[in-house]
Design a protein around this nucleic acid. Structure first.
Length: 292
DNA sequence: GGCCCCGTGGACGATTAATA
DNA sequence: TATTAATCGTCCACGGGGCC
């Protein structure tokens, strides 16, 4: 026989595993190495995907990169993947029991990538309440029967929901009527007044009380501090909350009562502009005189 | 000036991932 | 397998900011 590598004539096999093509093991190795840069396409033993391997790659090495990695690593018990596609979510595994307990996260989704959608679903629900409906973290805590409602902000933080700053939070509280300060407000003469039609209203100055009496005499129905508006304060250059003094439903009219001492013309113009944009008529009474 | 909502952040313990 | 590091839950106190 003629050796495929060196061309020498030889007889017999150099070993019982020899194919009979080579005179010696070194020739067989040398021949094999000469093809080492060649490759072949095989199917991954695990996933069946076609991959390129060295021409003489052993059967046991016919694994794609991912399957090779997978053999060395464990599956994530949250998304079920060897390499988490949303590591940002899987990393938050500590909050999952909380999301299940208080927000109804579907735990049957664990172990598959469906957990990502489920997580986003819960996050969207909370985000809608906090960002769009402007509920406070405390209100949300109560709403979801959270163990310690005052700590709901940590949940928002973990879910990457940007929290309001204290300034906006306080303005929100005013807008939704959570801050009233009625009895405590004592800078001017103030107190409760019963209207002609038996409504209880709170006045914050003697000027307001005088106007109450005037409306009582005329038997005009009115409300005090029942409306709230966001308006742009052009002097302070920020959004603020305006609470009109009087509202007369029959005329759809807002009435502001001011004294020289408290009157800020620019601020009043900012507020009135907003009232009118909402379709209300506006009356301003300064020092008992009707300006418009 | 006075009140109070709500955001902030620390302490501590429990749990789990990461590492040796 | 044991240890360490990271992170979350719970509880609490503080005080900024807003309103009139």
């Amino acid at each position: 026989m003629k050796c495929k590598k060196c061309g020498k004539e030889f007889t017999g096999k150099y070993s019982k595993w020899s194919s009979g093509d080579f005179c010696s093991r070194s020739c067989a190795n040398s021949y094999s190495r000469s093809f080492s840069k060649e490759s072949k396409i095989v199917k991954c033993l695990i996933c069946g995907r076609e991959i390129e391997v060295g021409r003489r790659a052993p059967q046991k090495n016919c694994l794609c990169k991912e399957c090779k990695y997978n053999k060395k690593n464990k599956k994530c018990k949250y998304c079920g993947e060897y390499i988490c596609k949303r590591k940002d979510i899987c990393k938050k595994y500590r909050i999952f029991p909380t999301l299940i307990k208080y927000f109804g996260m579907d735990k049957s989704k664990f172990g598959s990538v469906d957990i990502y959608k489920e997580y986003e679903r819960i996050k969207n629900i909370i985000e809608e309440e906090y960002v769009i409906n402007k509920k406070s973290s405390v209100e949300l805590g109560e709403m979801y029967n959270f163990n310690y409602v005052r700590n709901f902000n940590k949940i928002l933080n973990i879910l990457d929901i940007k929290m309001r700053n204290l300034s906006d939070a306080t303005k929100n509280a005013w807008f939704f009527g959570k801050l009233e300060n009625k009895e405590k407000y004592n800078q001017y003469k103030c107190g409760w007044h019963i209207t002609w039609n038996n409504k209880k209203v709170f006045y914050r100055s003697s000027y307001e009380l005088d106007y109450c009496k005037e409306l009582d005499e005329k038997k005009i129905d009115y409300e005090m501090e029942t409306l709230r508006f966001w308006y742009w304060d052009s002097q302070k250059q920020k959004q603020r909350v305006a609470i009109p003094d009087f509202y007369i439903p029959s005329e759809n009219m807002i009435v502001e009562i001011k004294s020289d001492w408290t009157y800020d013309e620019q601020n009043m113009n900012d507020k009135i502009k907003e009232y009118k944009q909402h379709g209300y008529k506006v009356k301003l009474i300064l020092e008992h005189k009707e300006l418009f």
